[in-house]
Computed example of a mutant assay.
Amino acid sequence: MSAIVVVDALWGDSGKGKTCAHLTLKHRAELNVRAGVGTNAGASVTLEDGTLVKARQLPIGWVNPGTRVAVGPGVLVDPLVLADEVARFGLEGRAMIDGRCGVITPEHVRAERADRHLADTVGSTCTGNGHARADFVLRRAVQAKDVPALAPYVTDVAREVNAVAADEGRTVVVAGSQGTMLSLAFSPDYPYTTSGNCTAAAAMDDVGLNWRLVTDVVMVVKAMPTRVGAGPLPLEMSAAEAEARGIAEYGVHTGRTRRKAEGLDFDLLRYAAMLNGPTQIALTFCDHYDPRMRGARDTGAVTPRVRDLIGLVEEATGAPVTMVDTGPRLGDMIDLVPVPTG
């Protein structure tokens, strides 16, 4: 029996997709299910052969051949994006969406692109998610079960998630979206937020997971946090400095420059830990924090500078750092606890 929830501590873009992919491989997970608002946030990972995988509707745990992928009932679905990802990744027969998902229409996308408040003030991706979510709350949105093109993928994802998680020897990984400090109700930075909450509890709710089945909450902490769009970013460095240091980042789908911080705000990290209750921490982008970590894959390669950071993060969160991310490739990850066998 196992359900692992993956959640971002701060403002997203922390490597949750890679962390989920790593966990599906490590635990031979049967199911990887997407939580979050919808297609307004991307996930990416570079495979061992150098192939860059980018998605924003389906989780990317399918990199494990035995893992099915799904979208929870609390998540919006864009039929065009879904069809593209199923085709690109060859996921016919392995992808599911819940029939109760709200549907993003072309009209929602057009409305957001014309909404200057969202585009200019909030810094929204303008992918139709906010307007679709508003229609869903007002009970006038279309649901996935009512769209003929989605029929091959429709099932009761909540039932499937709980069945897998409750069964001995089977594992489900829940992929949270965006970041805790972008949560509509919990961020101190409203209106510079997303249109839903991004905590571990919100992710469980998005996929209909019984909390009693949760075995771990993995909180992903980016060693040098980033933020896209408007809103405060403590310890922010200049874009020129990030470029000069070779650690500049850009959005997976929008291509927008990610504003980058020198390091962690530990008061915010403590608050994120309070909200999420992590049992494990994945510390990511350690190669940006210390270039000597680039591509390291064994525990002996963890540098003193990163070990010091691990200690500070563990003290702030009250949870052990069990994974250290060291580069863009899927295998650029160090497990600080033994990998299960059998």
Rank of each mutant, 00 (worst) to 15 (best):
P304V: 03
V252K: 07
K260S: 08
A261F: 15
T279P: 00
H253T: 08
L269S: 03
T279Y: 03
M323I: 15
R307H: 03
L268H: 02
A239L: 13
E241A: 09
R307W: 04
R258A: 07
D308H: 13
R307P: 03
E249T: 08
G255M: 09
G295F: 12
R256Q: 05
L264P: 05
H288A: 14
A261W: 10
L268D: 00
L264K: 06
A261L: 03
A230G: 12
A240T: 10
L283D: 10
G263T: 07
V321K: 04
A248S: 14
V324K: 15
G263A: 06
G231E: 15
V252F: 06
V324F: 07
N276F: 01
P278K: 04
N276T: 00
D290H: 06
T254I: 13
D290F: 13
T322D: 03
R329N: 06
R292N: 11
G327A: 12
A248G: 13
E315A: 12
F266M: 07
C286S: 11
M293S: 11
T317V: 12
A272V: 00
G277A: 00
R270Y: 01
L283A: 13
R245I: 09
P320K: 06
F285R: 10
I247M: 08
L309F: 08
E249G: 02
R294P: 01
E249S: 04
E236Y: 09
D265L: 03
R305Y: 07
I310Q: 09
D325G: 13
Q280I: 00
D265K: 00
L235V: 02
Y289E: 08
E236S: 05
R329A: 13
A273N: 00
A240N: 13
L233P: 04
G246Q: 07
P278T: 02
Q280G: 00
L312N: 10
L275E: 01
A301P: 05
T299D: 08
R256A: 11
E241D: 14
M274N: 01
P328E: 14
L233Y: 15
L275V: 01
D287H: 05
R294V: 05
E241T: 13
V324E: 10
I247N: 09
T326G: 07
D298L: 10
R292E: 15
R305S: 07
Y250I: 09
A240W: 14
A296F: 03
V324H: 07
P278Y: 00
R307I: 03
D298Y: 14
D298C: 14
G327H: 03
I310C: 02
G311A: 11
G311C: 10
V321G: 08
A230S: 12
T326V: 10
A316E: 08
R305W: 10
H288S: 11
G229F: 12
G263L: 05
A282K: 06
R292P: 09
M323G: 03
